[in-house]
Simulated assay, not measured.
Amino acid sequence: MNINTSPSPKMAQRILAENFSGASETLIAPLAETIVRLGRMSAEDAARVEDARNKTQMPFGRTAVRMGLLSKADLQYALGVQLGFLHETNNPVIIPQLLAVANNPYSKTAEQFRSMRTHLLAGRDPKDLNLFAITDADERCGADFIAANLAASFTQLGKRVALVDARLRKPTLGKIFAADASEGVSNFVAGGASVENVVHPTLIKNLDLTPAGVSVADAQTILASQRFSSLLNALRNNYEIVIVLSPAFGESTDVEFVWAAAEKAIIVVRKDHSRVDTLRSIEKAARRSGGLIIGATFTN
């Protein structure tokens, strides 16, 4: 994705006001100051870029990249810090490409996640969204992509969010966030690890990840256990929103145990791929597990 470094002032003001609680009310804080503070560019080079920008009337970030003084990755990171939803660090940072709301916050994809977030919150008690699962209707519908970006979009409202990878057979969230995945769900349930040991910070402010953990032979026993439910309850008591990425429907019966523990679910349906009879089966399975389907979203 190519980041849009020059949104219209009206668009930038609207996005900031409506979607980024950690950002200043305007974009007047120069991007150059953020880039220099983060150690991505010297003050001398920033002055050179500013001189060139005044001649070309191009945005500072785009000018710096064209001059070879700033990488696109550092520009994306500095913009995320300026908007207030990425942690500051002087270490090299590459925002994962799949995190559209952080990688390209002005993109159509990021806007779609903010719209999805708004629809979920509209007319609903926030407590009803305290804990829910996200499930593929069948394999490769993109539930991991949806879960990661929806979680990140909620943090942009200042909410504390926990993301849990319950795909014990095929974990994905640790890779998406390039996070420490050595201890997670399986370590808590089967290994006796503490909640603190299986919750890991991510690059995104207010978003913590509990990965799947070490590989286990019997994922179903883990997900059906009282320890798994107690993990979700502990997270629910400490975060405003807990999102659980479940196994895909039809892949195994694991998903029903996740629904039972999470109580609510959003189904990810792939356009021209997911079958109507599969959706009917999902509805029956949700009722059987005691889970409530609170919504569905489509992917291409």
Rank of each mutant, 00 (worst) to 15 (best):
N103W: 02
V49E: 11
T135V: 09
S194V: 01
I146A: 05
G250I: 08
D272A: 06
T34R: 06
C141Q: 05
F132V: 12
G290I: 05
M67A: 02
R53Y: 00
V189A: 14
K55N: 12
A190Q: 14
Q226C: 02
L70S: 14
V164R: 00
V93E: 02
F60L: 13
A219V: 04
F145K: 03
F249W: 13
Q57D: 12
A17K: 14
A286V: 09
M58E: 15
A147T: 04
F113I: 04
P126R: 11
N187H: 09
I3Q: 00
A143C: 08
I94H: 04
A12K: 03
N54C: 01
W259D: 01
D165E: 08
S281K: 14
G84R: 02
L38A: 10
V276G: 00
A212G: 09
D254I: 08
A152Q: 01
V216W: 06
R40P: 09
A234L: 11
V195P: 01
A100S: 10
D128K: 11
G184Q: 00
A179H: 01
I282D: 07
F113S: 04
V258W: 06
T210D: 06
V269E: 03
A100W: 03
P126V: 12
E50M: 15
A64F: 15
G291T: 01
D180N: 15
S289L: 04
N91Q: 15
Y106W: 08
R288C: 06
D254L: 04
V49L: 14
T278E: 10
